[in-house]
Write a protein that binds this DNA or RNA. Sequence first.
DNA 1: TGTTGGCACTCGATGGCATAGAGTGCTAAT
DNA 2: ATTAGCACTCTATGCCATCGAGTGCCAACA
Lengths: 350, 350
Amino acid sequence: MQLDNRKKEVLHAIVDDYVSTNEPVGSKSLIERHNFSVSSATLRNDMAELEHLGLIEKPHTSAGRIPSDKGYREYVNSLMTIEELSPREKLEIEKRIDSSVDEVTDLIKNATYTLSETTGFVSLAMSPRLKKSYLKQLKILMIEPGKALVVMVLSAGVVKDKVVRIPNFLSDEQIMKISGAVEKNLTGKPLDEITLVTVETAGKGAEVPEPLLKQVLYEAYAAIKQADELNIYLEGEHRMLSLPDFSSLGRARDLLGTLSDSGMVAGYVNEMENAAREQGNDDSFMIRIGQEITLEGLDDCSFITATYNLTDSVSGNIGVIGPKRMLYSKVISQIDFVKKKLNREIQKFT
Amino acid sequence: MQLDNRKKEVLHAIVDDYVSTNEPVGSKSLIERHNFSVSSATLRNDMAELEHLGLIEKPHTSAGRIPSDKGYREYVNSLMTIEELSPREKLEIEKRIDSSVDEVTDLIKNATYTLSETTGFVSLAMSPRLKKSYLKQLKILMIEPGKALVVMVLSAGVVKDKVVRIPNFLSDEQIMKISGAVEKNLTGKPLDEITLVTVETAGKGAEVPEPLLKQVLYEAYAAIKQADELNIYLEGEHRMLSLPDFSSLGRARDLLGTLSDSGMVAGYVNEMENAAREQGNDDSFMIRIGQEITLEGLDDCSFITATYNLTDSVSGNIGVIGPKRMLYSKVISQIDFVKKKLNREIQKFT
DNA sequence: TGTTGGCACTCGATGGCATAGAGTGCTAAT
DNA sequence: ATTAGCACTCTATGCCATCGAGTGCCAACA
């Protein structure tokens, strides 16, 4: 992309103006609002050039230009400068992310909510990916005949549990035996190395009749696998309805329809994460703009996520989904600050 | 309300027509669509009367009539007849409410989702109100220094837990002692009789230094109280955007904005429930129409809930929020059927 | 007294039309 | 390479006439 300096400035100005006014921007208003030392005719030439390069486009012949996805991309990649938040804004976020909760999960939800409030967009967080974490503790608790609770504590301090069904006539003692055996052999094991076979061998020590034992172990295994599932927290979907970008009912409907399938969104974030990792792209932010997003109904959105760290090897994503016509630098700073705050607060749990 | 038979029929017809067409209905089209044995002029007189009574109204002078809130109310109270669902529809619901889940909570979520899908509206369920249930089991589990898990099993088979912070230097044994003492003295107690004092006396037996004991007991108490909190599941908010009734962005925004505050909705449902109980109104359905609903942005909605039973004394609500222009009889049957199915499935857990 | 046909009137919706205004591309001059 | 100027394009806006569904009321009728 060989853009001379002025063309860069022009693109920069167009993005800025369009983001703040939501109107296609023309050569004249560009001159008015910015201190270009050239005439509008010159800008027109530049703009024609930029359009030729696919960076801007016009809704119709006699309208101003708006940035294309590619234009936003160029802006994000090499034009914008990120500014820090004001102390006031920082304070606001600090205040909202309340550290008095008892569980990491609540803290993450809290941060997600805050992010949605401060940006005014949809925010989301992924529960930590646990593959790389190991089992710190596992207990099977008898609840009542036929029902037990599998409680797992993972290395990152995350507690998960699941009610499972067990054979009716298993006694409390028998369950405790199984629990003890499994715990002894499984603690310290990385989650992704735990398979049905591992669990079954781990349980061998318990003196419990074979078929019963097997069933309990299977349930325990299923509980562990479930704990490993991805979880996503989405917040503030309704805020999108206040944006002029989604004043068309159809667009809004498609967007919220897609977002309502949180599993789908979670899958997409995961894909993004994997793609970024494969490319060795260890930029702290992942940004997808408009058509780059393969989810239906998000053509007019941008997707920005950052990675928060629970431990060195366990991390999750937090970010926002907003209109692609957004103040990128601002939103990125906001996400960044929330992420940092979250990281700091998480320390207290590990 | 003294309405002669024909006026009743007219109101009935107006509601039906308006619900199905979403257009104000005039005297002429009323004649066309229904077999009235009188002329349109007569109906006009009747309609003027109905309007005088406040049962119908016109958007503007030269338009047809639409039912007022009061009109819908009359319709719901004494005009409509509830028809059973077709076997096909029943089957569809039966199929969707999957009973293979392990926890009551999942079953309820499942039913909520199904209800939203079949009605096409927002559906909601309240977690069971637990006041009248008792503590079946309570265990405190050491997770790691400074952290414990309080696991509670309630009479209805509901399992709740909460991670709590405890003094760092408490040992596993000490926690087990406390757990044992509390459990021994608290099991069987109705939830609403459990206070901080009760918990503290219950823990007396444990041989653990006083201040430490007190802190743990306080946390346990807090966990129990939290288990008692109301929980609401809302589903399908985005579906409202597909309804012509909310084709105005403003309305849709207000509605979804309010619904996004699920705590507020939960509070409202609870109020409704209490109000109904005070009036000795043991109708199985609670219906609020339009302005009767005090939540902001729900003026164009109706709120219909039914009560499902977990045990004889523990119950919750399940229902829908839809446009007040809805097929009441149909929706009521749908809720009713889902409720019954839910009740049946719940049996398997208790 | 309740019912009916007739009629004038109301009011939103629709579509045509002219106008204004913002913006463009192109050309010729600097 | 830049600029002034100009013809052209297209949307948005407002106005106006028309259409049609629906109403209210009155006088006549069973």
